[in-house]
Amino acid sequence: MRQHRGGRREMVPAYAATTRAEPTRNSLDALTIIRSLGSPPAGLTPAQHRLLTVLEGGALTLVDASRLLRLPLGVVRIVVSELVDQDLILARAPIPQAQGPDTDTLRRVLDGLRQAARDEAGLPR
Rank of each mutant, 00 (worst) to 15 (best):
S66N: 03
A93K: 07
L68A: 06
G74T: 14
I89D: 05
R67G: 08
D85M: 01
I95L: 12
L71P: 06
P96Q: 04
I89N: 05
L90M: 13
I89T: 00
A98D: 02
Q97H: 13
V79Y: 03
I89A: 05
S66F: 06
E82H: 05
A65L: 03
R70K: 11
R70H: 12
A65E: 07
S66Q: 03
D87V: 06
P72H: 10
P96V: 13
I95F: 08
S81V: 09
A93I: 05
I95N: 08
A91E: 02
I78Y: 14
L88N: 03
E82Q: 10
I95M: 14
V76H: 13
S81E: 12
L71W: 05
Q99L: 11
L69G: 00
L73N: 04
V75C: 11
V63K: 00
E82I: 01
A93Y: 03
L68F: 02
T61Q: 02
P94L: 00
L68Q: 10
I95V: 15
V76Q: 08
L69Y: 02
V63L: 13
P101Y: 14
A98I: 08
S81M: 10
A91F: 01
D64Q: 15
L68H: 06
T61C: 01
L73E: 13
V76N: 10
L83G: 05
A91Q: 04
L83F: 07
D64K: 12
L69W: 01
G100Y: 04
G100I: 11
V75M: 01
R77M: 14
L90E: 15
V76D: 08
V79W: 04
D85G: 15
D87R: 13
L69Q: 04
E82S: 07
R92Q: 13
R70I: 01
L71S: 06
V75N: 04
R92I: 06
R70D: 14
A93W: 05
L62E: 02
P96A: 11
P72N: 03
I89P: 00
V75W: 09
E82D: 15
Q99I: 07
V76F: 04
V63Y: 08
G100L: 14
P96S: 08
L62V: 08
L62W: 01
V76C: 10
V76W: 06
A98Y: 00
A65T: 05
A93R: 11
R92M: 07
V63R: 08
I89L: 11
A98K: 07
A98M: 04
D87I: 06
S81P: 11
A93E: 11
D85R: 15
D64P: 00
G100C: 08
P101W: 15
R70V: 02
L88T: 02
